[in-house]
């Protein structure tokens, strides 16, 4: 099994007529994803390589039965695109776009949490989600992921997500689902959301988690792993040797409460029983050991 998506997931691409949307939408379709529609109010009635374009997400859902959407719309339009999809009843929204203002993200995150609790948002500023062999929504190169299992991947960084997939494939290890949650201040889906879903998924036997300096999401994930996970986890946190970043005034320091460094995150994860690697390759090797002992 996979989490959040599978081979039956029908996806509408908001922004399929734009250059990035078209490129990746068609790549995703070629991979086998059910790319059933695109939206663009000015191009309704046309098509992109046979994929029909509708004026709105609601119309696309009605015509095609789509339950997921993928957003390739420039940053200024992302908030209204997310809200349009949620209002239409989309259950899973993947927002790829980078550069969305943090206040917009905080607004639509809370809007979804309050008014559309059954809609899950992934991103923005994320590579998307791939369940190898079944469904690929976003910008991940499908060929670097080996289908099957037993590993689930969750990552805050786009390119390190690919790195993780690649490291596992090199070792002959398959992946149930790989979720790139993105590195923005208010990600729609958190490490904990993914860890809980992997814990509940019978085909996922172990989880690889890729973190980054800044914020406290890794520390919160470590707490969750300690208390709620029976499945083994390996991890890597990027930025071990990064010089101290810019401090966002006193308020930022208070909110993070001394958390946020790679060292603090790696210690929290190790305390929770996670196997922590010093680089992506080492984290992959640790996962290979875990898989060998399953």
């Amino acid at each position: 099994m996979s989490i959040f998506v599978d081979e039956n997931t029908k996806v509408v691409y908001q922004g399929l007529t734009g250059s990035q949307g078209r490129y990746y939408g068609l790549l995703n379709a070629e991979y086998g994803t059910q790319v059933v529609a695109g939206t663009n109010p000015k191009k309704a009635g046309t098509d992109v390589e046979g994929i029909p374009i509708y004026a709105t997400v609601a119309e696309a859902m009605e015509a095609t039965g789509a339950t997921a959407s993928c957003i390739f719309i420039p940053a200024p339009g992302v908030q209204s695109a997310v809200l349009e999809a949620a209002e239409a009843g989309i259950e899973f929204i993947v927002a790829i776009t980078e550069g969305v203002p943090a206040h917009d993200e905080a607004y639509f995150f809370n809007k979804l949490r309050n008014d559309f609790p059954n809609t899950r948002l992934l991103g923005p500023n994320c590579p998307g989600i791939i369940s190898p062999g079944k469904c690929n929504i976003g910008i991940t190169a499908g060929h670097i992921a080996k289908p099957g299992g037993p590993v689930g991947i969750v990552s805050r960084s786009g390119t390190l997500t690919y790195q993780a997939l690649y490291e596992l494939k090199e070792k002959g290890i398959g992946v149930t689902t790989c979720v790139g949650i993105g590195g923005d201040p208010v990600p729609g889906t958190s490490f904990i959301d993914c860890l809980a879903a992997f814990e509940a998924d019978p085909e996922t036997k172990a989880v690889m988690m890729i973190g980054e300096i800044g914020g406290s999401a890794e520390e919160e994930a470590a707490e969750f792993i300690k208390n709620n996970m029976s499945k083994p986890v390996s991890s890597y946190v990027a930025g071990v040797t990064a010089p101290p970043g810019k401090k966002m005034g006193h308020a930022g320091a208070i909110v993070s409460g001394g958390k946020g460094t790679a060292q603090a995150k790696m210690e929290a994860l190790a305390d929770a029983g996670v196997k922590v690697g010093q680089n992506p390759t080492e984290a992959g090797e640790l996962m290979a050991e875990i898989v060998a002992n399953l």
């Binding site: 390119t159 790195q163 980054e212 990027a238 930025g239 990064a242 680089n279 992506p280």
Partner: peptide, 17 residues
Amino acid sequence: IANGAGLAMSTVDVINQ
């Protein structure tokens, strides 16, 4: 030179290592 903040940070880490 790397693409993505995570990979760039990781590259810096690996060079140090």
